[in-house]
Design a protein around this nucleic acid. Structure first.
Lengths: 110, 110
DNA sequence: TGAACATATGAACAATTATTCATATATTAT
DNA sequence: ATAATATATGAATAATTGTTCATATGTTCA
């Protein structure tokens, strides 16, 4: 236990928090931003849609690696795919992503 | 290799991207948001500053676990500490954090 | 000074995750 | 159909990371 109003504070805060499931999902969402390969992939996609092999060359990693990471980005609805012949072209799902990206950048550049 | 304008596109995008170091730091920053325990701790701190033992009770984890996670939050300048007698009171460093949090929440609630 | 309490930290363990290799699937052109 | 190319995926491995236990540090009060 602890100081005087411990119990009351705990109850108050617990009552006002979003439910655990939501926060769990939120953590999963941010987890996607927490890897430098994925961050670089997303960053590349800010400019335009790109094929998998272009992305691989841009980030300097194996095509396989990029494919795996793109799947993760797809699962969290951060990117969408378009097939055109042999290529798959990936692009960002919406603009939230760039905004969150920029806010993070703001924070670390302080 | 790949389709026609592959090389040009790769060069163009590579030229416009922030340098790798910055993106690495950015990923590290978001990594902090990518754990449900830390997310819950931050969420609790939106309301007010809290002692370590309060936080431990709110998130339902060991004091030790919370202390370790608070250190990580401190290292990334997301929280600050204030000593008052035996207790350490933690609070959020700035408002970026809540904004980023809310944007993430917006995204997953779609 | 010593007891009691709050917090911090090191070591160990379990679990998760990123990457690569090898290979499968899909598409196009010959 | 076969060859060539682009992408996707499964298995294996290495590395990272979250949690806990045990204990150290710091603070107050008797």
């Amino acid at each position: 236990m602890a100081h005087e109003d411990h119990k009351e504070i705990v109850q108050e805060i617990k009552g006002n928090m979003p439910d655990a499931d939501t926060l769990f999902d939120l953590a999963d969402f941010f987890k996607v931003f927490g890897d430098s390969t994925r961050i670089r992939i997303m960053c590349a996609l800010f400019e335009r849609e790109l094929s998998v092999c272009c992305i691989a060359d841009i980030v300097g990693m194996e095509q396989s690696t990029v494919s795996h990471q793109l799947r993760i980005l797809r699962q969290e609805n951060l990117v969408k795919v378009r097939r055109d012949g042999k290529q798959s072209y990936y692009s960002l799902e919406d603009e939230h992503i760039q905004k969150i990206f920029e806010m993070g950048l703001e924070h670390i550049l302080e």
